[in-house]
């Protein structure tokens, strides 16, 4: 890999100080664990003049609980989240998703905020500087052509975080802290369907807290992903499922996908299953709906048709398993 580019490192100890530093420094970026950011810096994908290291900000390392729900600081590690009994019990999919990110070493210092804000990924983007240069770069960075869809003007790089779909099905919210203060928004609002610019977070804004609302706690939920190597890889396709049933019928079903769209996608049109009994025909229909809303492109070494098929299968299997267990 290339030599490290020149940049300064700042280690603030408070959220406001971090936000101020980032907004006062042209070209500054936040870094927490660094499992994604440092790789991208080394590949020339990110070219910061300064990195604002969040590892010394104590407020971001805490999980608190109140009547409202669980509040997970953005710099809490994935390992801590996956081992937290409250998350395991009330927001099972989130704990499972955190435990599914890369490998155990990555989980021991990679953070929740980092996974939620993960850059989108593509075969033609996550490469070294010389690789991308020899390929005339790409639409997402320095280039004019998308090698995935050469005729188009859109970037199809896939969002590949594991925690986001799991948090989405639990109606999670996040705190964003910017120079003008703090705002709390639904998690779904921070993503958009654009691989080039998938985060609807203002430059310099910091994702500080993930809120998991108590009103959603305790319903069965689960997450599973397909990947090339079971030990460490990003998802080729992943699905999180949340279900509420009474007397054998569906009250509400939520499914969110990752790695098959440029943003973590909450499946639409599942209201029609309210009151339905989960038999094979209904499960098939659910898989069909999931597959039709997954739009994987040639962004990985694995073929899009496989990822579309597998994400439908995962969603079907998880729905069946949850309904039988609850």
């Amino acid at each position: 890999m290339e030599l490290m580019p020149e940049f300064d490192l700042h280690r603030p100890t408070a959220v406001e100080e971090a936000v101020k530093l980032c907004n006062e420094t042209d070209g500054a970026l936040y870094v927490a664990g660094g499992t994604d950011m440092i790789v991208n810096v080394r590949r020339g994908i990110e070219q910061p003049t300064a990195l604002i290291d969040l590892s010394a900000v104590e407020e971001l390392q805490q999980i608190t609980e109140d009547a409202d729900g669980l509040h997970i600081g953005a710099a809490v590690t994935l390992e801590t989240v996956s081992n937290d009994v409250r998350v395991q019990k009330d927001f099972t999919a989130v704990a499972e998703a955190a435990a599914a990110v890369a490998g155990p070493t990555h989980q021991s210092y990679g953070t929740v905020g980092g996974n939620l804000c993960l850059d989108t990924r593509c075969l033609f983007y996550n490469q070294s500087e010389w690789w991308r240069k020899s390929n005339d770069y790409c639409l997402k960075k320095n280039g004019t052509i998308c090698h995935v869809a050469p005729g188009g003007k859109r970037c199809f790089a896939a969002f590949s975080g594991d925690v986001a779909p799991a948090a989405l099905i639990h109606n999670a919210e996040v705190d964003l802290v910017g120079p003008n203060g703090r705002r709390r928004v639904p998690l779904t609002d921070i993503y958009r369907n654009d691989g080039m610019n998938h985060l609807a977070i203002e430059p310099g804004e910091l994702l500080a807290v993930l809120h998991l609302p108590k009103s959603e706690a305790g319903q069965p939920s689960t997450y599973e992903k397909a990947r090339v190597r079971g030990s460490i890889d990003f998802p080729l396709a992943g699905a999180a499922v949340w279900i509420k049933q009474s007397s054998g019928k569906i009250d509400e079903l939520r499914i969110a996908l990752t790695a098959v769209n440029p943003y973590p996608h909450l499946i639409k049109g599942l209201e029609k299953f309210t009151g339905a009994v989960l038999d094979d025909a209904v499960l098939d229909e659910i898989a069909e709906i999931v597959q039709s809303q997954a739009k994987p492109m040639k962004t990985t070494t694995v073929k899009p048709w496989y990822r579309r098929r597998v994400v439908g299968s995962i969603a079907r299997r998880l729905t069946k398993r949850l309904s039988e267990a609850s």
Binding site: G34, V39, R42, D53, G103, T105, H106, S108
Partner: peptide, 26 residues
């Protein structure tokens, strides 16, 4: 050199971590 292989694993405060993705100043 990119956090995939684990050859550079060291312990920081007792926890395994990739030295190739960790800044010394951190």
């Amino acid at each position: 050199d990119g956090g995939e292989c684990g050859c550079c694993t060291v312990l920081i405060d007792g926890k395994p971590r990739h030295a190739c993705l960790t800044l010394a100043a951190s």
